[in-house]
Nucleic acid binder design. Structure first.
Length: 636
RNA sequence: GCUCAUGUAGCUCAGUCGGUAGAGCACUUCCUUGGUAAGGAAGAGGUCACCGGUUCGAUUCCGGUCAUGAGCUCCA
């Protein structure tokens, strides 16, 4: 005789066990029809779930946020059914709901073609129309294994054996003749999926995410409560693609990439201006934060890389070169060994610590060809790197300072929400547990002291030390690591560096590796997308363009350009024999913040007519006034 | 590196069921001197990614390589 408490606090008493759906029906037939699932005592369950005892219950309908995940998981099942109906012999593996949609991994020798995807989607709509009831069934473990192995579903057997913990019940979900091993919950019937879904693309994916395993075919799809939301999503993607830094990079003439130098950037004048302005900015910030700046060699002898451990641990990622005298050199993939050499030069005292040594180092890494991606993932990039040498006692405060600095810098670019990841000791770590306790403690204490949330990634740290990663998101929702902070007691050891302590003894410093933008290339890629090419004035490669209306004002316009340049304003003039509307359009599309229009009137009065990139008419003013306007906006 | 797809003019893309190619924009020249998001005309521009194979003939079909794209794995 369960008493059920609903979210509004009202009570319902029943004579016997009732299903979620029964309760919904009891409240009203409309609600029953809309019921997707239930939440009993906080646990998401099927609509058919039987409530035997006093419980709290929330009916989940299509409007609840929890429904979306169920919907997407159902879409994955329906897609799997569709695939197996059309392509018998295809094995199913796993198919979860993900952000914005779902995927399902299949094992099949023949590749799925784009045409196949169309067929699969069509069949999915049919299965939805069939409105098959989705029924949960609990099986005995061995029985389940036998069923799937008789079907030739070897991956499912492996899942039952390895993934589902012994003792947990093995449940299958059945829709029509088709069924799948699944924890659930699911919607009451296939019809509930509606028509707000779409099969998107196919890609390879390793079985259980391990590159040593066979590659499966993963079909991605998106699913929404209705067609309108699906359309809105597709539109959102389209809009995001317009921000793609590769597209804007070309349109705004910032950079290009070339086949002969895969993964390396040719910076055009405008893109290089951006680059330089970012360096200026970072130098300003670092100077204020007590850093010094150095520069170390790009090419160094193999022996150095052996000492640092890179030759053993990072060899396959390094570019090497052999000279006439048979010496082997490597292009630096990281700046740290050079930095340590710099520290090692000359005697260091405890008075020198913390020593914050920055370097805008260009590093070369031989990245797998399939990993390259515009500016985001390249083989040659510039880090705003720094290494902080300090005592163990100073370590935590230095970490706090770095985290505060990086977040403050991101704020200057409008990145308020930054995901912080903490990666801890991996299996192949070097050094004792005590050292790792200290290093990890330094990072987590720093975050705790600052009251910052972070996501823990156990076992993901570098072999020499744990790390913090600061993650920003690109236009189409992909996450990119930018800043990083790592603590390291290994490299100082390997290079045997020391400082002279107060008591005259030699002591080993702790080393912090940190980068704030991370890679200048990647950060610029993210900025292009973040601003959609409309950079703040101080970053804008061209800040103002002077436009004449007819040839008559050519000399005057040229003169204005000169005056602006003299004031350090990045100005160009456009004296082409084109109509004013044409020039305005072009420079608007080029995202130039200010357009100065010069006609006879302006020329006679010695003024300029100012128009903003956004199309606002800022009126006619003397050049001096415009210069002041720019100067007022050019700060960081 | 792995899977799938793609590679035609500076850019965006047509096209050739195998007979060495086309549009728009951009570019050059000319006309136009026009007041805030595209004025008009003409011209030039391509070893159809590269290397092999099949064929009388390959940009087109097949194979390989390279690059790019979407993912996977890996990482700033």
């Amino acid at each position: 005789m369960p008493t059920i408490t609903l979210p509004d606090g009202s009570l319902k008493k029943f004579e016997q066990s009732v299903s979620v759906l029964d309760v919904a029906s009891d409240i009203g037939p409309g609600l029953a029809k809309a019921t997707f699932a239930g939440k009993v005592n906080g646990c998401l369950v099927d609509a058919s779930f039987l409530i035997e005892q006093d419980s709290t219950l929330a009916i989940i309908t299509g409007r609840d946020p929890e429904a979306l995940e169920l919907l997407r998981h159902d879409a994955a099942h329906i897609m799997a059914q569709s695939v197996q109906e059309i392509f018998p012999g295809t094995q199913v593996t796993i198919g979860p709901a993900i952000e914005d949609g779902y995927y399902y991994d299949f094992a099949r020798d023949e590749p799925f073609t784009p045409d196949d995807l169309v067929l699969i989607e069509k069949r999915m709509h049919e299965i939805v129309k069939r409105d098959l009831p989705i029924v949960r069934q609990v099986l005995d473990r061995d029985e389940a294994k036998k069923i799937f192995s008789d079907l030739g579903e070897t991956y499912k057997v492996e899942i039952i054996e390895d993934v589902i913990p012994v003792g947990e019940e093995v449940s299958i979900y059945k829709q029509g003749d088709w069924f799948d091993v699944c924890r659930g919950p699911h919607l009451p019937s296939t019809g509930k999926l509606g028509n707000g879904f779409k099969v998107m693309k196919v890609a390879g994916a390793y079985w259980r995410g391990d590159s040593k395993n066979v590659m499966l075919q993963r079909i991605y799809g998106t699913a929404w409560p209705d067609k309108k939301q699906l359309k809105a999503y597709l539109h959102r993607i389209e809009e995001a693609e317009k921000r793609d830094h590769r597209k804007l990079g070309r349109q705004l003439d910032l950079f290009h990439l070339h086949e002969e130098a895969p993964g390396s950037v040719f910076w055009h004048p405008k893109g290089w201006t951006l680059f330089r302005k970012l360096l200026d900015y970072m130098r300003f910030r670092q100077d204020n934060a007590g850093y010094i700046e150095v520069s170390t060699p790009d090419v160094m002898d193999r022996s150095l890389w052996e000492t640092s451990g890179h030759w053993d641990n990072y060899r396959e990622n390094m570019f090497t070169t052999q000279t006439e005298d048979d010496r082997v050199f490597a292009l630096k993939p990281m700046n740290c060994p050079g930095s340590v050499m710099m520290f090692a030069q000359g005697l260091k005292s405890y008075r020198d610590l913390p020593l914050r040594m920055a370097e805008f180092g260009k590093v070369h890494r031989y990245e797998p060809s399939g990993a390259l991606h515009g500016l985001m993932r390249v083989r040659h990039f510039t880090q705003d790197d720094a290494h902080v040498y300090c005592t163990e006692a100073q370590m935590e405060q230095e970490c706090i300072d770095v985290v505060a600095l990086v977040l403050d810098i991101y704020k200057d670019f409008g990145f308020e929400e930054v995901v912080i990841k903490l990666s801890t000791r991996p299996e192949n770590k070097i050094g004792s547990e005590e050292v790792w306790d200290k290093l990890e403690g330094a990072l987590s204490n720093a975050l705790d002291t600052m009251g910052l949330d972070y996501v823990l990634y156990p076992g993901e740290g570098a072999f020499y030390g744990p790390k913090l990663e600061f993650v920003l998101r690109d236009a189409i929702g992909r996450d990119w690591q930018c800043g990083t902070l790592q603590v390291d007691m290994n490299l100082p050891e390997r290079f045997d560096i020391s400082y002279v302590a107060e008591d005259g003894s030699k002591k080993r410093p702790v080393m912090l590796h940190r980068a704030l933008f991370g890679s200048l290339e990647r950060f610029i890629g993210i900025l292009i997308e973040h601003y959609e090419g409309k950079f703040p004035l101080w970053l804008s490669p061209v800040q103002a363009v002077v436009i004449n209306i007819t040839d008559k004002q050519g000399d005057y316009a040229k003169n204005i350009e000169k005056m602006l340049k003299k004031q350090q304003i990045r100005a160009i003039s456009d004296l082409r024999n084109e109509k004013i509307g044409f020039k305005i359009r072009e420079h608007t599309l080029q995202r130039i913040p200010y357009m100065l229009v010069i006609g006879d009137r302006e020329m006679e009065e010695g003024k300029v007519a100012v128009r903003s990139q956004g199309g606002d008419d800022l009126g006619v003013m003397p050049v001096e006034q415009f210069i002041e306007l720019v100067n007022n906006q050019s700060g960081y």
